[in-house]
């Protein structure tokens, strides 16, 4: 009983923590809704997409490609490439699901989007995250995503040009604010620099969302290389200490 109440509490906190970004998610949803209506996609089809796919940028690409006869294979491949980053995002969530049964993971992971993932990982740094918190954020985002897209489809976009209000920057700003809590110590410097450089380069030369994958993997590998460089030095120090003992 108390456990259920605690989980409800975490769920509510997660939902509230995602509200800052929910407004821009809804505004972008309304833009997608307008595009979908132009492509003759019914509101019901759009709702099914929202509920079953729940991935903003992938849905934008799908709607763009939505011209009869539908290029089914191209659409699925496009979604695969854009959402490849979820492999990394899913992997980074493993401390949250440690020791939990498979059904719990299988039921929860559908509700992971970029925004509630970032909010949850920031809370995790403060020791305040839980699966309930993640899901609360997911349900909040799914709700406003559906509201925004359907409102756009039925009524037209409530904001025609989100860029004019800096709303495209809202996502960047939220992630930047969360990033402030991710800095651990000076050893993060090099991996973060490598991630920044690789993501910038990849965003220039590669299509879609590859820049997230390139920067994320490259930066984390830099962290591994950095740790490796430190360990062998320790090893060398140990062996040099051992050498005199061997000679005696």
């Amino acid at each position: 009983m108390r456990l259920a109440a605690e989980q409800m509490d975490a769920f509510r906190q997660g939902a509230v923590a995602n509200l800052p970004v929910a407004a821009s998610v809804a505004a972008y949803g309304s833009v997608l809704g307008v595009l979908a209506a132009k492509q003759q996609i019914s509101w019901l089809t759009l709702l099914v997409m929202n509920l079953t796919i729940f991935a903003g940028s992938a849905q934008f690409v799908m709607v763009e490609m939505w011209l009869p006869p539908l290029p089914v294979l191209e659409i699925i491949l496009g979604v695969l490439v854009i959402n490849m980053r979820y492999l990394l995002i899913g992997a980074s969530l493993h401390p949250l699901f440690d020791g939990r049964p498979l059904w719990r993971k299988a039921l929860s992971m559908h509700l992971v989007a970029d925004e509630n993932w970032a909010v949850t990982m920031a809370a995790h740094r403060r020791g305040q995250a839980s699966i309930g918190y993640l899901l609360g954020g997911g349900v909040c985002l799914l709700g406003v995503w559906c509201l925004g897209t359907l409102a756009g489809h039925r009524l037209g976009a409530f904001i025609q040009n989100p860029e004019a209000f800096g709303l495209d920057f809202a996502f960047v700003a939220v992630f930047t604010a969360l990033l402030a809590g991710f800095w651990r110590n000076r050893s993060d410097g090099l991996p973060w620099l490598v991630a920044a450089a690789l993501s910038l380069a990849a965003s220039q030369f590669l299509p879609g969302k590859w820049y997230i994958i390139c920067g994320g993997i490259g930066g984390a590998l830099a962290s591994v290389a950095q740790a490796r460089r430190q360990t062998p030095t320790d090893g060398a120090a140990r062996s040099s200490r051992r050498r005199p003992t061997a000679s005696t």
């Binding site: 980074s92 991710f182 991996p191 690789l198 994320g216």
Partner: peptide, 24 residues
């Protein structure tokens, strides 16, 4: 070992990669 270091660095580096091209 290496994989643990990799996974621990991942959230920060994904987030950096999400924002830097947008800021630019």
């Amino acid at each position: 070992g290496a994989f643990k270091t990799f996974l621990e660095a991942l959230p920060g580096t994904i987030l950096i990669s999400l924002v830097v091209p947008g800021i630019m």
